[in-house]
């Protein structure tokens, strides 16, 4: 069925209000819109790694989830959902369950790129029929903005603070979508909140309804950690895509597809200057840092274009 924005918005809400995420949080915007990929009437079990999302959406006795939900621990969201999906297969095989269920797990970048990486990798390699969604805000926000392997270079975090001898995080961020794509699973995609969510909605539905393992990497800005004005989130996401910092792509059965190419690729400053975590880059004498950042964005963009041209 062709995509229709209004119909997608008309679907029942699957994340209830009353959760305790910060005002303006990108994480719950990601969750709400991913869950709109589910067809009406289909049941789902939602998994969750420990993080902001978990402690805020299931604070006893208040659950914000309209579907069945399981949080286990920080590093094992992939394995936990493997077990849930395994139970589904077994109960189906034994004739104990008629209904169709879909399995969707959410983790922040810390729980996905770092501590939960092994568990995620295992779940993907075993090709469980599940979607793992990383809402990537580029740091351990729940514990107070510590760097993760998803944190971009030069970001000022509480464990890579800017100082007289430091320009923020010294290393580049891990390209997790590419790492997961190397698992040769049926579907991998990267997206964020642009194009009125069309890209995100379509990819979510594909991920949920592709048999086997699927992975979605969603840039989900954090107003506190990135230090921008909360109402600006959509603009930040747009700039992430227009500067090619966060390209939109998918990998379907091993085939890389570029979903969007900016008509005019914007310089990376446009993305960086909106965010307090990169403020130091705009001090006089730090021009070379922005150049280095730009160089890395360019290199990755070219690499992606090459992959998608094959």
């Amino acid at each position: 069925m062709a995509y229709n924005f209004k119909e997608t918005m008309n679907k029942p809400e699957r994340l209830a209000p009353g959760h305790r995420m910060c005002a303006g949080c990108g994480g719950t915007i990601a969750v709400r819109n991913v869950l709109r990929g589910l067809h009406e009437g289909d049941k789902a079990v939602i998994g969750n790694a420990t993080g902001c999302l978990e402690v805020s959406t299931f604070t006893y006795p208040y659950t914000a989830w309209e579907d069945s939900y399981i949080h286990n621990a920080f590093e094992n969201a992939g394995a936990t959902m493997s077990g849930v999906e395994g139970a589904y297969n077994a109960l189906k095989r034994k004739g104990k369950l008629d209904e169709t269920y879909k399995f969707i797990t959410f983790g922040g970048d810390g729980g996905t790129y770092d501590i939960g990486f092994q568990s995620l990798s295992g779940a993907m390699e075993r090709n469980h029929d599940m979607v793992y969604v990383c809402y990537d805000n580029g740091a351990y926000m729940n514990t107070g903005i510590q760097r993760s392997s998803a944190t971009p270079m030069y970001a000022d975090t509480t464990t890579t603070p800017v100082g007289s001898e430091s320009n923020g995080k010294p290393q580049n961020r891990k390209d997790l979508a590419a790492v997961i794509a190397a698992h040769d699973i049926p579907y991998v995609a990267q997206t964020t909140f642009v194009q009125n969510f069309k890209d995100l909605h379509i990819k979510s539905e594909k991920a949920i309804y592709t048999p086997g393992a699927a992975f979605l990497n969603i840039m989900a800005p954090c107003p506190r950690g990135w230090r921008y004005d909360a109402p600006d989130i959509m603009e930040i996401c747009k700039l992430g895509v227009e500067t090619c910092y966060w390209p939109l792509f998918e990998v379907v059965e091993g085939k890389w597809i570029l979903n969007y190419e900016p008509k005019k690729k914007l310089p990376i400053e446009e993305f960086l200057c909106k965010q307090g975590r990169f403020k130091h880059l705009f001090k006089k004498g730090n021009e070379h840092l922005i150049e280095a950042f730009q160089k890395e964005v360019d290199r990755r963009w070219e690499e992606l274009q090459f992959r998608c041209s094959k």
Binding site: A16, H19, T57, T59, Y60, T63, A64, W65, E66, S68
Partner: peptide, 13 residues
Amino acid sequence: IIVGSGTSKDFNT
């Protein structure tokens, strides 16, 4: 465990 869903609506943010 909580049986049911969306109980957070009772929490007034």
